[in-house]
């Protein structure tokens, strides 16, 4: 039973690690692009939010699985 909590905590941490890396890479690329071409900034922002929402979605799936592990 205690191992389940360990697994859930580790899983949530790993999921957040992956999502953080992904969103960080995305934001850095978007910022570089916006610095190169400031006139595209608003378009880039929309695309960045969409992509970050997709990354976040995958991370949330993992977090929901972790949450379900603790409450089963």
């Amino acid at each position: 039973m205690d191992l389940v909590f360990l697994a859930a905590g580790l899983g949530a941490g790993l999921a957040v690690l992956g999502a953080g890396l992904g969103i960080g890479k995305l934001a850095s690329a978007a910022l570089e692009a916006a610095a190169r071409q400031p006139e595209l900034a608003s378009k880039l922002q929309t695309m960045m939010i969409i992509a970050s929402a997709l990354i976040e979605g995958v991370a949330l799936f993992a977090c929901v699985i972790c949450f379900m592990l603790t409450t089963k």
Partner: peptide
Amino acid sequence: FALTIRLFANMTA
């Protein structure tokens, strides 16, 4: 499904 979980998880979190 992703839309469901995203909104639910963000508000609950």
